[in-house]
Design a protein around this nucleic acid. Structure first.
Lengths: 125, 125
DNA sequence: CGGGATCCCTTGCGATACTG
DNA sequence: CAGTATCGCAAGGGATCCCG
């Protein structure tokens, strides 16, 4: 059954996995979700993001911000002052994405114990 | 790979990103979703999976199957015949996960044009 | 302050060959 | 048929330094 039916062509994924894979390729990396969460609802400054996301490097913050901006999930606004000031806000599209991710969060929390149990059982052998 | 127990805290993620990150760490790789989709509702044999997922290598199919089985998302049943026969089925928990992913699919399809446009705009400069 | 450039290590993944 | 073992490349990501 393909209730995960896809619209566009998406390389070599089986029918149904395509669109999901597309999203995952964008936000399935180490920092995207953390940034999206931390940047909501915005605006928030670069240094504030850095402080809000423990463990992220300056490099990865910049890179991930660029990718999110490129996909239209973040809006970057720079003010040509001295010292410079840059603010990021999430777009309406990203807000909708967060709602979608909420479904995943619910699933994760509901089955977190089952997963732990399954792992324990598996690792025991 | 992550050998921490599933019950552990999500470490450095901001509040709210934790559970989602947890799911993404499991299925955010290259083949997990494709396999879950192809294996539904099951049972399906190893070679059938291999044929159903174009481009996957034997190695990655095996590895990803193991991880999914470990997390309790797939059930592996081997029949000690000659030649051997192994069947995989997705678990009820994985079925629920697919429903959750449907939300993401919907989002992806609805905004796929907007994303493409945002990218084009960004790349143009 | 908000990055870019460079270096380097680690991880993911593909290709290929072998096996019960 | 359903794997395992080994190799090697390339992407991901951290640390550090520099710069307008």
């Amino acid at each position: 059954m393909d209730f995960l039916s896809a619209g566009a062509s998406c390389g070599s994924a089986p029918a149904g996995a395509c669109s999901v894979q597309d999203v995952l390729d964008r936000i399935g990396n180490k920092w995207s979700v953390s940034i999206l969460v931390a940047a909501a609802p915005g605006p928030i400054r670069f240094s504030a993001l850095e402080r809000a996301i423990p463990g992220i490097s300056r490099r990865m913050l910049t890179l991930t911000l660029r990718n999110l901006e490129r996909d239209g999930l973040l809006l970057r606004t720079s003010y040509p002052t001295v010292p410079p000031r840059v603010e990021y806000s999430i777009t309406p599209m990203a807000v909708e994405l967060q709602s979608a991710l909420l479904t995943l969060t619910t699933w994760a929390e509901r089955h977190q114990a089952d997963i732990a149990a399954a792992r324990a059982r598996y690792d025991e052998r």
